[in-house]
Design a binder for these strands. Structure first.
Lengths: 216, 216, 216, 216
DNA sequence: AATGAATGAGGCTTCATTCAT
DNA sequence: TATGAATGAAGCCTCATTCAT
C-alpha cells in the first residue's frame, strides 16, 4: 500500500453508484470487520453473508485490503479532516460570541453523533488503525496536517481572548485530542456502547475545561 | 477460552523455570506480536526468530492462543490490579499529608515507567485487548472489581477533604481512567514512543487537575 | 459426528453432479482408503493420486471425515437396507414356490456380486466400521431396524412352512448373519479376493442349510 | 517389518521380566489400542496414561510398531497355533470316544473363554490384523501352516468315522473357520461384548453341525 | 456483471523419535 | 534406568486469489 492507493481510493469513490449486491458486500464486510477484525474475517465469510460469490468481491475490489480501505478511508475523511473544518465554521457562525465551552460542547456532540451513526465503521477504523502500520502511516500525517492545525487555530484564538490557560497551544491541543480520542475509543470500541448520553458528553466537557480539582 | 484458562495460566506461571530456548520463544513472541499483532504473526515466524522448532513452542504452550495469554495475563495482573494497591499504599505512606496532585503525579509516573519498561507487552496487551473479545471479557471484570474500587476510595477521600470537585465519584473516576488510558495508549501504542518525558506527565497531571480553562 | 451428519450426507448426495476432478478424488480416496485404511491415508496422498490440489478436496468435503462418510454411507445404504427389501421381493416374486435354499442361494449370490463390483468401497466400509466407533453407532441401529426385521420375516415364514428348524427366529437370524458377515469379510477384506466363485457360494449355502454333520 | 522382527519379538519375550512401570505401559497401550486403534493412539497418550515418560517407552520398544507387535504377537501365538494343538490333545485325551460335536463344543468354549479373558488384546489383534498388511502377512502364513493342518487332521478323522459330511476336508475347514472367525469377531469386536454366554456357544455348535434346515 | 471451480501458499497442530543428563 | 527437552516431518485445514464460462 502506498500514497497512491490512498488517493486512488479517495477519488474512485466519487463515481461509485453501488448495485444492490455491491451494497450487500459493503454491509457484510463492515459488520464482520467490526465484529471480528479484519485479519480474522475471511473473504469467504463476507461473500457468504452478502450472498454473493467470492469472485464478485475480487472483481470489484481486487484485494481484500482494498476492500477494507474502501470502507474505511472515505469514512475517515469525513470523520477527521476537511469536513471538520466545515463543522467548525458552522458551529462558530451560529454564534459569534460563543464561549469555548459552548464551542467544545457543540463540537463533541457533533462528533459523538457522527461516530454513533457509523459505529461499525468507526470500530473498524480504530481497530485497524492500531493494528495496521499501513493505515496508520496514511492517516496520521493526514490528521497532523489537516485536522490539528484547524483546531489549533481555534484554541489559539480563545487563548488570545484569555478564556483558555496561557500555555503552549500544542500542549493544550495534545491533551484535548488525547482525551477525546480516549473518550470515543473507550466508549464505542472497548465498551462497545451504541451511543453516548448527553450528560456524559457534558461531564467530559467539564473535565476538559476544569479538570477534577475544586480549587478556583 | 474461559475463566479457567485465565486462572490456570496465572497459577501455572508460578513454577515456570524457563530454559534458554523457552526464554527466546517468549522474547520473540512478544516482539513479533507487538510489531505485527497476534493474528498477523505466524507460529513459524516466532519459531524462526527464536531459533527453535515450532514443535517446541507447542510442546510448551499447546496452542498459539495460550502462548499469547501466557505473555499478556501475568503482565496485566501486575499492571492493573492488586499491585496497584501496593503502589497506592506505598505512595501515600511516603507522605501522609500529600495532596491529590502529588499523589496523582507519583502514581502516573510509576505507571508510565512500568509501561515503558515493558513497552512491547503493553502494546500487545492493548492491541489484543481491543481485538479479542475473549481477552476483554477476562480483563474488564477484573479491572472493574479490583482496580476501580481502589482508586475510587482514594478519590472519594480527597473529595471529602474538599480537594476535589464535589460531583459523583464515579464520574471523576471514569474521566480520569478515560484520560489515563488514552494517554498511555496513544503514546505507547499509536505513536509507538519508547518513553514519555516527565514534563509531559506533568502536563497531563495539570490537565487532569485543572483542565484547560483559565478561569479560577 | 451425529445423526445429522449421517442424514445430511445422505441428502446432499442427491444433487451431486461431480466434475471430472471431483470424480478423480472419489476414486483416489476409495482406492487409498481400501488399501491403507483411512487413518493411514493422508489428504495429501489422495490429492496427489487424484492430480488435484488438497484445497479442492476440502472445498468439496470440508473435512477428511466427511470425505470418508460421503463415500461409504451411500454405499452402505445400498448394500444393507431398504434396497435389500427390493431384492427380497424380486427374488421371491421370481418364484412363488421357491424353497429357502433357493432363496438363500439367490440372495447370497446377489450380495456377493454387489460386494465384488464395489470391492474397494466394501473394504473401506468393513475396515472403518470396525475401527470407528462413530460409524458403527450410525450403521448398527440402522442395520438392526431396517435389515434384520426384513430377513426375520422371511425366515419366520419358512419356519412356519416347516422348512427351517423350529427354534427362536432370532437365533437363526443371528447365526445366518454371523456367517454371511464372516464369509464376505474374510473373502473380500482379509484375503482380499476380487471375487467369490459360484461353487464356494454354494458350499456356503450348504453349510448354512445343513452344517457339517452327516447325520440326517 | 520382516520375518526377523516377528521371530525376534517372539524370542525376546522369553526373558521378559517386566518392571512395574513397564507393566503399566503394556496395560495402557493395550487399552488405548483396543479403544481407539493403533493409528489413532499417540505414544504421548500411552505415556501419559501409564504415567511414564515417552522416552522410556522408546527405550524399551524402539518404535511404536514394535510396541504393538510385542503386545499382539505373543497373544496371537497363544490364541492360534501351537497351543491350539495342546488344547486339541487335552480335549481329546479327556474322552477317547468323544463325538465331533462334543469336541467342537469343548474347543469353542475354550477359545471363547480365552478371547474373553484377553478381550482387549483380542480386539487389537483383529483390528490391526485387518488394518495392517504387515501383520496380516506375518500371521496368515503362520495360521495356514500351524493351525489349519491340525484342525484338518481332526476333521478328516471324524469324516473317516462317518460323523461328518463326506466332502473335501478343506471345504469343511474353511466353512468352520469362517464361521468361528465371524462369531468371535462380531461378538467381541463389533458388538464389543465382554463375554459370550454358554447357550450362544451351544447354538453356534448346533449351527455348525446341522445348519438351519429342519430336514433330516 | 457474476460465478463455480480450482489452487499455491501458508497456518496451526500432532506425531514418533532422539539425546543429554 | 528414566526422563525433560527438543525436533523434522507430516497432518489437516483455511486463505486470498485466479480464471473460464
Amino acid at each position: 500500500m502506498n500514497q497512491n492507493l490512498f488517493q486512488e481510493i479517495l477519488s474512485s469513490q466519487q463515481k461509485a453508484k453501488l448495485t444492490v449486491k455491491q451494497e450487500r458486500v459493503v454491509e457484510a464486510a463492515i459488520s464482520l470487520f467490526a465484529e471480528k477484525g479484519y485479519s480474522n474475517t475471511s473473504t469467504a465469510e463476507i461473500a457468504k453473508k452478502a450472498e454473493v460469490s467470492e469472485a464478485s468481491i475480487f472483481k470489484q475490489y481486487g484485494t481484500k485490503e482494498r476492500l477494507l480501505l474502501s470502507l474505511v478511508i472515505p469514512y475517515a475523511k469525513d470523520f477527521l479532516p476537511a469536513k471538520a473544518d466545515e463543522i467548525i465554521q458552522e458551529i462558530r457562525s451560529s454564534n459569534q460570541h460563543m464561549t469555548f465551552e459552548q464551542f467544545l460542547t457543540a463540537f463533541l456532540k457533533n462528533r459523538v453523533a457522527f461516530a454513533a451513526e457509523n459505529r461499525e465503521v468507526f470500530q473498524v477504523l480504530i481497530k485497524e488503525f492500531i493494528y495496521k502500520e499501513d493505515l496508520k502511516n496514511e492517516l496520521l500525517p493526514y490528521f497532523a496536517s489537516e485536522v490539528v492545525p484547524r483546531l489549533s487555530k481555534v484554541i489559539a484564538s480563545y487563548q488570545a481572548r484569555g478564556e483558555l490557560r496561557d500555555v503552549e497551544t500544542t500542549v493544550l491541543v495534545r491533551m484535548v485530542f488525547t482525551f477525546i480520542g480516549g473518550f470515543l475509543a473507550s466508549r464505542f470500541v472497548v465498551l462497545q456502547q451504541s451511543r453516548i448520553e448527553d450528560d456524559e458528553v457534558e461531564a467530559a466537557v467539564q473535565f476538559i475545561m476544569n479538570g477534577i480539582s475544586s480549587q478556583h
